[in-house]
């Protein structure tokens, strides 16, 4: 699709959302049996699966730290996740996304509880639709909790951007491709920022308001993450026995 003439009309975006509205989000916890913790997430057109393994033995051995666990985060896009086939395998972009996502989650994990071990996080993007790193972090933090890994709190992430000189929350594909700015943000429920990147240009005032918008979006996502984790066991709790 080529660049649309207008992104916003009467305060409504091309996909029918208001400027501060998130795309529909769906979490599913514990979808993989072999992983210690897992989560499937649909965030608008994004479809991602996160799997967590560990704490487990570190291979290769030289990577292990004698006093803490290490965290490895692997972000990968499936070759069919985008319109033009993506060449499979790690590339410059996915290496960067892996690094910043790892750093977004590391501060909340109690790594000192598991010396000489590794916590492996794998995020596979099945379908990409702008904001996959945010989606990956959301799914990964739920998967970490599902794996029973001790953490300070969950991490929620979403993006804020600028199109038609207006700040908008949670960019979609066109807004991302042709917009003026894209700012992915990850925050803890306590308001600590663990990821903040910026692509494009914003004035400092815009940046401040944008950050507040993103934090509000993250707070909404946090509620969904919490609800998803609660739902995994509440079904059984209500129903009691199988009779």
């Amino acid at each position: 699709m080529s660049k649309p003439e207008k992104f916003i009309e009467d305060g409504i975006r091309l996909d029918g959302r208001k400027i501060d509205e998130l795309r529909p989000i769906k979490f599913e916890v514990g979808i993989l049996n072999r992983a210690d913790g897992s989560c499937y997430l649909e965030m608008g057109g994004n479809k991602v699966v996160a799997a967590v393994y560990g704490p487990r033995e570190v291979h290769p051995r030289h990577m292990q730290k004698s006093t803490t666990a290490i965290v490895r985060y692997k972000y990968n896009m499936a070759s069919f996740s985008v319109e033009d086939r993506k060449r499979p395998g790690p590339d410059r972009r996915s290496t960067e996304v892996s690094k910043v996502s790892r750093q977004a989650l590391e501060p909340v994990i109690f790594v000192e509880k598991y010396p000489r071990s590794v916590i492996d996080i794998f995020v596979e993007v099945l379908q990409a639709d702008a904001g996959t790193r945010a989606a990956g972090i959301n799914a990964a933090s739920v998967a970490l909790a599902d794996a029973g890994i001790p953490m300070k709190c969950l991490v929620s992430a979403c993006a804020v951007g600028k199109v038609d000189d207006t700040l908008v929350l949670d960019l979609n594909k066109d807004e991302d491709n042709y917009g003026q700015a894209d700012v992915p943000v990850a925050v803890t429920p306590g308001g600590n920022i663990t990821l903040l990147q910026m692509d494009g240009h914003l004035t400092s005032d815009e940046f401040k308001t944008g950050l507040e918008m993103a934090k509000k979006g993250c707070a909404d996502i946090y509620k969904l993450q919490k609800a998803a984790l609660m739902a995994k066991y509440s079904d059984d709790t209500e129903g009691g026995s199988n009779e």
Partner: peptide
């Protein structure tokens, strides 16, 4: 605060028993 995803018991000893984990 809770550090893990699990069942919390608040009676005299505050602890959370994880639902999964190694």
């Amino acid at each position: 605060f809770a550090a893990v995803y699990g069942l919390a018991s608040l009676k005299n000893n505050i602890k959370v028993v994880p639902l999964s984990g190694r």
